[in-house]
């Protein structure tokens, strides 16, 4: 029914072991890429707002230098980068048909790493907002900081919910075509969040401390 005959979508494909699902993936994965693009745009807007606010929105509240500690940020970065690797393993397990067990194992590891990331982030927020007296209400700069970082955190949290739903689906349906396509999309989503975090790590935290 579609005009295209050979799928063109980028990223890890199912071509190797499951040709049918691979063909069905084309419009779905393509559509998801477009969604990711618009989601990235949301982050772009938040980054731009942060860039503007961090130069002239600090008022009399603490600025990035007083606030940021690279220690826990580094741990968060490692956790998230590690989780991208483990999700990659899950995708490979799916691609080469290594069975639901392998896929679930790597996804569980990914989820744990993601949850760890979130835990550290929440403790960071607690540290900033409560202990150091810099809640988002304190200045425009802090508003934009929390908005940007927490939007990323909320994305990670919703990806974790999604992951739990996928565990249930694997249990109910096994690795059916629909489930595979959903895991592929979750994988893309997860990797995008990692890319966004690299941006946050660099532009918000590193630059903030260096300035």
């Amino acid at each position: 029914m579609s005009a295209q005959t050979d799928p063109l979508y980028p990223g890890m494909t199912l071509e190797a072991a499951d040709r049918d699902s691979h063909d069905a993936a084309e419009p779905v994965i393509f559509g998801f890429w477009i969604f990711l693009m618009s989601d990235l745009l949301l982050f772009a807007v938040l980054f731009a707002t942060y860039a503007a606010m961090s130069t002239h929105g600090q008022a009399d509240a603490p600025g990035p230098r007083e606030l940021f500690e690279l220690g826990s940020i580094f741990i968060e970065t490692m956790l998230l980068l590690g989780s991208t690797f483990t999700f990659g393993m899950a995708s490979l397990a799916m691609k080469y048909d290594q069975g639901a067990g392998a896929v679930v194992f790597w996804m569980v590891v990914t989820g744990l790493l993601g949850a760890g990331f979130l835990g550290f982030e929440i403790s960071d927020f607690y540290q900033f907002a409560v202990i150091e007296g810099a809640p988002p209400q304190a200045s425009g700069f802090l508003s934009s900081f929390y908005a940007l970082v927490a939007t990323h955190g909320l994305h990670v949290a919703s990806a974790l919910v999604w992951m739990v739903v996928m565990f249930v689906q694997i249990a109910v349906f096994g690795l059916s075509r629909e489930v595979k396509l959903r895991i592929m999309r979750l994988a893309l989503f997860w990797h995008m969040l990692d890319v966004v975090w690299v941006g946050i790590f660099t532009f918000v935290f590193l630059f903030g401390v260096v300035q």
């Binding site: 503007a52 929105g57 509240a61 200045s139 934009s144």
Partner: peptide, 11 residues
């Protein structure tokens, strides 16, 4: 928050 308020660095 203070994104667009007149005070505390809102713009």
């Amino acid at each position: 928050f203070h994104f667009f308020t007149t005070d505390k660095g809102g713009d």
